[in-house]
């Protein structure tokens, strides 16, 4: 059975690595995953991000099902991976050690 809402099951293979529970952990996942994994996640998410957010926006945050919540976490990881792949590319590996020196200590997504 899919961990994700209907229409987003093609993202199932990415749940284990990218449905990560805090902003700082999402950044750590970005740093940990090799460029090929980042590119694969980016390629899978890019065509679906707008419809994923439309789906999630139709439901109040407090009423998200577990599957909706998992999709939300993937969307939030995409917020980290889109600049990694589309802007920085191979440079992102070099930057990872500096990003890890800027730990995220508070994020609105972590507060519910």
């Amino acid at each position: 059975m899919s961990a994700l809402p209907e229409g987003f099951v093609t993202l199932d293979p990415y749940v284990a690595d990218w449905a990560v529970a805090s902003a700082d952990a999402r950044d750590a996942a970005r740093s940990k995953q090799p460029i090929a994994a980042r590119q694969a996640f980016h390629a899978a998410m890019e065509p679906l991000i707008a419809s994923a957010l439309d789906h999630l926006d139709a439901i109040p945050l407090s009423a998200h099902s577990p599957a909706d919540h998992t999709l939300m976490l993937l969307a939030l990881s995409y917020a980290h991976i889109a600049p990694s792949v589309a802007v920085l590319g191979a440079d992102d590996d070099r930057h990872a050690i500096y990003r890890r020196r800027l730990p995220i200590t508070r994020a609105t997504a972590d507060e519910n």
Binding site: R26, L53, L56, D57, L61, L76, A79, P83, A107
Partner: peptide
């Protein structure tokens, strides 16, 4: 965060 989209937008600004 008022919505999933806003949550995504805010985390994007952080990154």
């Amino acid at each position: 965060d008022r919505s999933a989209g806003e949550r995504f937008g805010r985390e994007s600004v952080l990154t």
